[in-house]
């Protein structure tokens, strides 16, 4: 905890204006991401989990600079990635890259794999001609493809192969951070295992740091170092994988884990939900999940409260005197 983190998201909010419901009403805003603060340490895999619309993908896009934050700072090794003093799009490309969810939409159908990868090298003046070709071949081999795949077009590959190409593209500029946006959800089970193994192997070999966006708790538990649970734009629980999965404490986290259809359920009837960690007496959880929070409503007074080593959960402020 003493070393400065690799990436720090400080009080990030992303608001979208909603279409007016009436001419006389003021414009409402959707708080897609609301006061989110997260840190990513060197060599770590931080997973952000939650369901559709919880703001996890918007957070990822903000980290990538593909979505301008409404408020908040994103710092890389203490230097700002957004706002004044932010690096250019080109410089930023060397810091973080993204692997996308849909391996079919994430490759330009009109450009061959080799050309796509070499264009990156050329743009950043990293390699030209035969040297560039060698580096592309090396990268394709590294992600489990063959060098002669370079001349092919995206439609000639299967879903799993395309996701490997997506990973190769993300690694081409040798970034320090990989943002994985649901990297498995479009793939078959048997392919998922291959891609998870590849990602874990690459992380160790290249000393990468991952931010993984996912709704798949089994995979998250399997690969993460730390986990943040998002619910309606907020982080409601955050901690090391062990404490979040062994003592899920926020009611939403508990419901999420309880909802996972489990293969073992048939054998041992219903899986027992692990116990929650104790919270300060009298504290209320926020947001209250018995009511669907209105994502347009302004933030209430709540904060993440430490309930274990590095394990924090969002509690309402007034309950905490």
């Amino acid at each position: 905890m003493t070393a400065s983190p690799l990436l720090e998201i400080r009080d990030l909010s992303v608001h979208f204006p909603l279409p007016r419901t009436s001419m006389f009403q003021p414009r409402e805003t959707l708080r897609a991401v609301d006061h989110v603060s997260l840190t990513l340490n060197e060599g770590e895999c931080l997973s952000i989990v939650g369901e559709s619309g919880c703001g996890k993908s918007t957070t990822a896009l903000a980290v990538m600079g593909l979505q301008e934050p409404t408020v908040g700072r994103i710092l890389y090794r203490g230097k700002p990635l957004n706002g004044p003093g932010a690096p250019s799009r080109k410089d930023r490309a060397r810091i973080a890259q993204m692997v996308f969810q849909d391996p079919f939409a994430s490759l330009n159908p009109r450009i061959s794999i080799g050309r796509m990868l070499m264009a990156q090298l050329a743009l950043h003046d990293l390699a030209k001609g035969s040297e560039a070709r060698d580096r592309v071949a090396e990268m394709l081999t590294r992600v489990g493809l063959s060098p002669d795949h370079a001349s092919r077009f995206p439609h000639e590959f299967s879903g799993g192969q395309r996701q490997r190409i997506g990973i190769a593209r993300a690694l081409m500029l040798d970034p320090r951070i990989l943002v994985l946006d649901e990297p498995l959800s479009a793939l078959d089970v048997s392919i998922q295992a291959q891609i998870i193994n590849l990602l874990m192997e690459l992380q160790e070999r290249l000393k990468l740091s991952y931010i993984m966006i996912s709704h798949d708790l089994s995979v998250v538990e399997h690969v993460s170092d730390r986990v943040a649970v998002m619910y309606f734009g907020r982080v409601v629980e955050e901690g090391g994988w062990k404490s979040v999965f062994a003592t899920p404490t926020h009611p939403y986290t508990r419901r999420l884990i309880d909802s996972v259809p489990d293969m073992d359920a048939v054998l041992s009837d219903r899986r027992q939900l692990p116990p929650a960690a104790p919270v300060p007496s009298g504290a209320r959880f926020a947001p209250d999940i018995t009511h669907r929070p209105d994502p347009r409503a302004p933030a209430d007074a709540s904060g993440l409260v430490e309930i274990g080593a590095g394990h924090r959960v969002r509690l309402a402020m007034q309950g905490m005197t």
Partner: peptide, 23 residues
């Protein structure tokens, strides 16, 4: 192979990540 390829919730043990069995 299908059953082995899928990580199971609650199956991870302390100390490092395991490779998944590929089909």
């Amino acid at each position: 192979g299908l059953l082995a390829a899928r990580p199971r919730l609650g199956s991870r043990v302390e100390g490092g990540r395991k490779r998944l069995t590929e089909l």
